[in-house]
């Protein structure tokens, strides 16, 4: 079971997670009863990187239209900032007393908080990226709801013109997202849904065309044609709703699948 739900987050945090575990093990094995090296320089490097993340994160939360990101990002950034402060304290304490136990504890706590805080920042960002895709999926659903009122070729041309770019963007975005997910079942479901949407889209257009043709001729079989069109539209909507649902799942929602 992967801990991180995207490969991007995993690739960033996994090496640190391993190092933190290693540090904790060394501490627990009692091998740490020796002098700590001077940590001033590596801690300074961490602080500098944290300052940069806080700057980038604050700029992002100021400029975004995403209200959830605006609300969640500062809190996540504060955690990382706090963690960096713990590391600075650890370096100061160990410089005064290289055998200092509080220094070692602060180093472990600070490292853990850095990991957790950075993870939170990345999750806030990731969730915001997912919301963008979900928004496009919802826009596609809105366009699909128009299908039932299209009754002439001119409107159908406009419908296709409106639907095509957003549908194409959704499929590309979802495919990209799917590739980044670490959860195999989520990947499979999303791939299946995208394939269904891609298959159904031209069939839906075709059914709309048939409906319009029948309507403009003798009208015989128009009810069946409308039924067929509505069915296809409903199927596409179902697939898009499933995409929306799965996109918002993380590996922590695993229980839902049991």
């Amino acid at each position: 079971m992967p801990v991180f739900h995207t490969k991007t987050i995993e690739s960033i945090l996994e090496p640190v997670a391993q190092q933190v575990s290693r540090l904790v093990i060394i501490h627990e094995e009692g091998e740490a009863g020796h002098e700590m090296p001077d940590l001033e320089r590596p801690v300074f490097a961490v602080s500098k990187a944290v300052t940069n993340l806080v700057k980038v994160g604050r700029e992002m939360s100021t400029s975004t239209d995403d209200l959830i990101l605006k609300q969640d990002m500062p809190q996540a950034l504060n955690k990382v900032d706090e963690a960096a402060r713990l590391l600075v304290e650890a370096a100061k304490l160990s410089k005064i007393d290289p055998l200092s136990k509080p220094a070692r504890m602060k180093l472990i706590e600070g490292s853990r908080w850095i990991l957790q805080g950075t993870s939170n920042v990345l999750l806030v960002f990731d969730e915001s990226e997912v919301r963008k895709i979900v928004q496009d999926c919802k826009k596609t659903l809105d366009y699909l709801s128009v299908a039932e009122v299209v009754e002439n070729m001119e409107d159908l041309v406009q419908f296709v013109r409106d639907l095509s770019p957003i549908l194409s963007r959704v499929t590309v975005e979802v495919c990209k997202r799917t590739e980044d997910l670490t959860h195999q079942i989520h990947r499979e479901v999303l791939n299946r849904c995208v394939e269904q949407v891609k298959t159904l889209a031209p069939i839906l257009i075709c059914s709309m065309k048939i409906f319009i043709q029948i309507l403009s001729q003798d009208g015989k079989g128009v009810e069946e044609a409308a039924e067929n069109r509505n069915y296809l539209c409903g199927r596409m909507s179902e697939e898009l709703n499933e995409i929306i649902r799965v996109l918002q799942l993380t590996t922590y929602d695993e229980d839902e699948w049991d």
Binding site: V16, Q19, P37, A45, A49, L53, T118, L122
Partner: peptide, 29 residues
């Protein structure tokens, strides 16, 4: 994205810090 690069920098700096701290401990044992 800038935020991903910034997070990467923190991750590598933190990993380097812990490595420095823990390797020094190991060497002394």
């Amino acid at each position: 994205e800038l935020i991903l690069d910034a997070a990467k920098s923190i991750a590598s700096a933190t990993a380097a810090l812990i490595k420095a701290a823990s390797e020094a401990q190991r060497e002394l044992v």
